[in-house]
Amino acid sequence: MDALVTGRLIRTDGGCLALESGAPEPSIVLFPFGTALAPDGRSADVPWYGTVREGDPVDGGGGYVGPGALADDTARAALRDECGSERVVAWQQ
Rank of each mutant, 00 (worst) to 15 (best):
R8I: 11
S21R: 11
T35C: 01
D40C: 02
P26M: 01
Q93E: 13
T35N: 01
M1Y: 14
E20L: 11
R53G: 01
A75S: 09
Y49L: 14
G84K: 04
G66I: 02
R53F: 02
D73C: 04
T12Y: 07
G22H: 05
E20P: 08
L9C: 06
D2M: 15
G66L: 05
G68W: 13
V46Q: 00
E20Y: 07
E25G: 08
S21F: 15
I10V: 05
A77R: 13
P26A: 03
V88I: 15
A75W: 11
E25H: 07
S27E: 08
M1A: 13
A69G: 12
A78E: 15
G63F: 01
V52N: 06
S27A: 15
S85P: 09
C16T: 06
S43D: 02
L17Q: 04
A71H: 12
T12V: 09
P26Y: 00
A77F: 11
Y49D: 14
R11V: 15
A75R: 10
G55H: 01
C16G: 07
D81R: 14
P67V: 08
V52E: 05
T51A: 01
L17I: 04
G34N: 10
M1C: 15
P39D: 14
P57T: 06
G61T: 05
D45S: 15
P26I: 00
R80W: 06
G14D: 09
P32Y: 03
S43M: 00
G68K: 13
P26N: 00
D81E: 15
D2R: 14
R42I: 14
A44Y: 03
P24E: 14
R8K: 14
G62N: 09
G14R: 08
L37A: 05
P39T: 06
D59A: 12
L30M: 13
R8A: 09
T12W: 10
V65R: 13
E86L: 11
D13N: 11
